[in-house]
Design a binder for these strands. Sequence first.
DNA 1: CGGCGATCAGACAGACCTGTCTGTTCCCAA
DNA 2: TTGGGAACAGACAGGTCTGTCTGATCGCCG
Lengths: 218, 218
Amino acid sequence: MSKQSLKKRSDAEADPVIPPGSTSETGPASEIRPPSERILTVARELFCRDGIHATGIDRILADAHASKMTLYARFGSKEALVREVLTREGADWRDAFFAAVRAGAHAPLDRLRQVIPAIAAWFDGGRFYGCAFINAVAEHAKGEPALRALAAEHHRHILAFLGDLAEAADLPEPALVARQILLTMDGAIAALMVSGDPAVLAVARKNLDAILAAAEPG
Amino acid sequence: MSKQSLKKRSDAEADPVIPPGSTSETGPASEIRPPSERILTVARELFCRDGIHATGIDRILADAHASKMTLYARFGSKEALVREVLTREGADWRDAFFAAVRAGAHAPLDRLRQVIPAIAAWFDGGRFYGCAFINAVAEHAKGEPALRALAAEHHRHILAFLGDLAEAADLPEPALVARQILLTMDGAIAALMVSGDPAVLAVARKNLDAILAAAEPG
DNA sequence: CGGCGATCAGACAGACCTGTCTGTTCCCAA
DNA sequence: TTGGGAACAGACAGGTCTGTCTGATCGCCG
């Protein structure tokens, strides 16, 4: 029994996140990323992949090749690190998602339909672990209002984006349509995480088409 | 910092699940429920409410007024207890959900629409912590295929129920309609858990209406 | 009455967790 | 060349976790 938990631990440790000596992807190759950036990158990957409770500080530091003093001097606590990771993950996720939607089509209505291919691209990208905010709230259940606030803000940003598209597409009640599409996205993401079956995306696309068909005047 | 976790702990402990001396709800008042049943009841409430990782064995045993030997003699490990809790939670949830759907209407198509009021009743019941399966998978992320298998079985049962209704309603492609409705349910439950805003249900109802409108021939 | 099985109460082991603290190294700028 | 700050390595404290084990208690059945 205790051997089981030991095995699980060693399995997790035999799965590095950052190759040693890696450099910034956005800067020149000679620029070494500062330790706090490495911590954020590794923590983000591990929190999303393995869960927050299941990821210990020591594991993050080992993978990031950083020391405890650096982490606590820069972030103060694991909880604060979680908040910062979620904030960054949300911003980056939205950047990628909005870019994928915009790149897929030009007309507002076509862009709304691009929501499903954008999720498909995310799923196919190999780093799909479900919605980080839903996962975080699920782990902390009723408590942690700070996490719920971050999740709510994430949703607000997405709703604004979808609402603008719906309004530009001259749909009546664009805010409502945005909420309907976001709900479809949440359902697709949850179902994808549980089942791992990409067929979910075809179902979600059917729902999206039904929403848009019902929304269009006439 | 450590005082914070201490406070959190005492808060959690000052929240009993089973009143002392409680008896079975289904049997006569003189019948005392066996310890393993009390453990299952308490574990189910705490796992769903606070999360699996956040709920320790000691907390379950204290609230259930049971001893460790009983738990390990009956269940073998915490992981096995989690599986049994999820199995029972899923069966009971489906019983209540299906009953609410059936009680709300008689005609198959009307019963499909009752899916939203049934979720609303669950939400208003005061013991809504989101879908236990989604939460469990979110907590264990990629690992634990056993939990994903339980979640998949849960979904299969719901799909069968919805599919039968869709078929009885003479909808074309009843299996697809069932998946569309289940996806809408998952989205509503996830959004409800994160936001706690019952207005989500009105959006979900709109989506359901759009799905049924698109599915009906003509 | 006597024994037995179920249960309880709690100590204990071993591991992991977060967070603090002490030294040391190393680079860069004055 | 030298001083200072950033980062490193790792010990340490105090606590929690799961799971094992010992001994006491209680009720029931023969």
